[in-house]
Design a protein around this nucleic acid. Structure first.
Lengths: 170, 170
DNA sequence: GCATATAGTTCGAAAATCGAACTGTCAATA
DNA sequence: TATTGACAGTTCGATTTTCGAACTATATGC
């Protein structure tokens, strides 16, 4: 992953997130974390991943503060991997991924899992809404600005791109 | 990607989504798509990806119906890559990724990009809410059931896991 | 005839991943 | 006491992917 370390430095929140969870095993590990899997052997048997790859990914997720490695017994020392708050904050990413898969990738048998919101007691879908007005968000209703951490020239480039080619020709 | 083709077959919406967008370049390509990039050369110069890898990923995204390859001129024939509805539906995934990066991976200079909701005119954050009651969703407030497309034994396994280890010991 | 633009393809070298076997610690069993 | 089993990794050679650089193909403009 030598080349990919530079992603962390990029002036882009997608790139920086991809540096953390942008490989297949990491996403699957996190899926299992949200299903309360915590131990090496259990990750391994569920995922079928090569053991050293699993060890590497767990190490990396700990390094990035997404998981923490907590002892659950001495003699012999054993550790389990638990989501930190930073890791728990990936829940919207996971749910968005699950929902897209539920809508676009299911077979004729339907969804593998259903999600029930304990607060209201109903099976639900996750919906992405605007923090300010509460309405669902669609790509075309969003305008992108350069923020304080933008790269040089990003503002101009975004402006040019926004005016070019009016959204859709056909 | 020989081994990963089997992900598509798995009884899990995360795995099936990962089969489509589960590598680094694909996510970065999609980021650029949502910023209205459409042409091979522009993807290539923005991403710096090896050209054959880019070609391969674009081919795959078209194969999965996330992008379509549309001609924009004859003589010589030239094509551009445009998000389909299936691709546009990945917007919540992208926004969730961006937001996590904004919160957890920014440097001292702040967010690279700001998102303005045209409907309400404000800079916003994406929030994941319950489709049924409209409240924001947290991982601990969700109970997972086996759905109609679940694997054999999934229901029992989930039930066992839900009762085990009451959420957090320390 | 030659440079430029666009969208790829080809190829050998380098890096990541693979499966299988091995290591180390300790408890329980024979 | 020797052996087996559970757990959490590490090591290793073979395979697969990715990398960077060069090359191909089509057409326009000088």
């Amino acid at each position: 992953m030598a080349r990919w370390d530079s992603l962390e430095q990029e002036q882009c929140s997608v790139a920086r997130t991809v540096a953390v969870i942008g490989d297949r095993w990491s996403v699957l590990i996190l899926r299992d974390c949200f299903l309360r899997v915590r131990r090496f052997e259990e990750f391994q048997s569920r995922l079928g991943a090569p053991r050293h790859i699993l060890a590497d990914r767990l190490k990396k997720l700990v390094h990035f503060g997404v998981l923490r490695r907590a002892p659950y017994q001495d003699k012999p020392a054993r550790y389990e991997y638990i989501l930190t708050q930073k890791g728990l904050d990936l829940y919207p990413v996971m749910m968005a991924i699950v929902h897209w898969g539920d809508v676009h990738m299911v077979d004729e048998r339907g969804r593998p899992l259903l999600h029930e919101h304990k607060n209201c007691g109903k099976v639900f879908d996750p919906v992405l809404v605007c923090s300010e007005c509460g309405q669902p968000i669609r790509a075309k209703e969003v305008h992108v600005h350069a923020g304080p951490g933008a790269a040089e020239g990003a503002a101009e480039e975004l402006a040019a791109r926004a005016s070019a080619s009016p959204a859709r020709s056909r």
